[in-house]
Design a protein around this nucleic acid. Structure first.
Lengths: 145, 145
DNA sequence: TATTGTTATACTCTATAACTATA
DNA sequence: TATAGTTATAGAGTATAACAATA
């Protein structure tokens, strides 16, 4: 804790804390998902595809926040693993709709469990109420314009 | 908010929230520090040097969490701006002790103010108590082994 | 022999530009 | 003419390996 009047320690700077919290959780998630053959970025795509409406590559790219050219390689890899499948949209043949295969559906379910366990482990230093408030605060902060 | 039984929305995943909170704060900090000619990474180095003990390039690199080879270019740039100075440690001539120049001391003071304003803006959606609890929780999480 | 700073090099990640096929 | 996917290319960022000076 910084002494009044002194320079705050680097570790007390919000930017440092947020960055390292992100790094820790990401690396724990990568490790937890590794036995399933995917990483946290793949998981971001897969859990999007586990949702209700089918999505084109471009829509997925926008949701994740990467370029559509970056999405190509991501989908290539997942398709190579047999967990997703590209299908030309019959109503607009320029678009690829990406769908989970049955193996993909199964993978997403296992990945959700693995990721949930990682989150629980990460939040373990907090009480249930603290963890809830923490995520609530985070949502408010990220919702900022 | 996720409906019970449904897949949680991507935006509710802790990893997503942490990553985007970090991105938002970092980019706000870069913008706030830009008029001073530095970015948030430079600021991390400078505020370390504003502390009590002098540090070698390697020590700074370790504190920041980058390789010592990466530190070279960072210090090059800051030295080129005239805000830090390399000095060979007379007690171990292999080491470069990096010190703030008087212009550097001045810069750090202004940068601390600018960064503090950015943090305040970022935390604005929270009440003072919520912001305090949020940072407290973050410290606990990052302190994990 | 080990360590600090440095340089050269390579690797990862991602975006920009250009091409194709469709619209 | 504009858009989705693709490919090739380039840029940022950072690490690994090798070298000089010093311990």
């Amino acid at each position: 804790m910084p002494t009044p009047g002194s320079h705050p320690e680097p570790r007390d700077v919000l930017g440092y804390l947020l960055k390292h919290a992100t790094l820790q959780l990401t690396s724990a998630a990568d490790a937890g998902l590794n036995p399933l053959g995917i990483d946290s970025k793949d998981f971001g795509v897969l859990r999007l595809l586990g949702g209700s409406e089918p999505r084109s590559q471009q829509e997925i790219a926008e949701s994740i926040g990467v370029d559509r050219t970056t999405m190509v390689a991501l989908i290539d890899a997942l398709e190579g693993q047999g967990v997703v499948q590209r299908r030309t949209d019959p109503r607009d043949r320029r678009r690829n709709v990406v769908e989970l295969t049955s193996a993909g559906v199964d993978l997403v379910q296992r990945a959700e469990k693995a990721y949930a366990a990682v989150e629980r482990g990460f939040l373990e230093p907090l009480t249930a109420a603290q963890a809830r408030d923490f995520q609530r605060a985070l949502r408010k902060l990220v919702a900022q314009p």
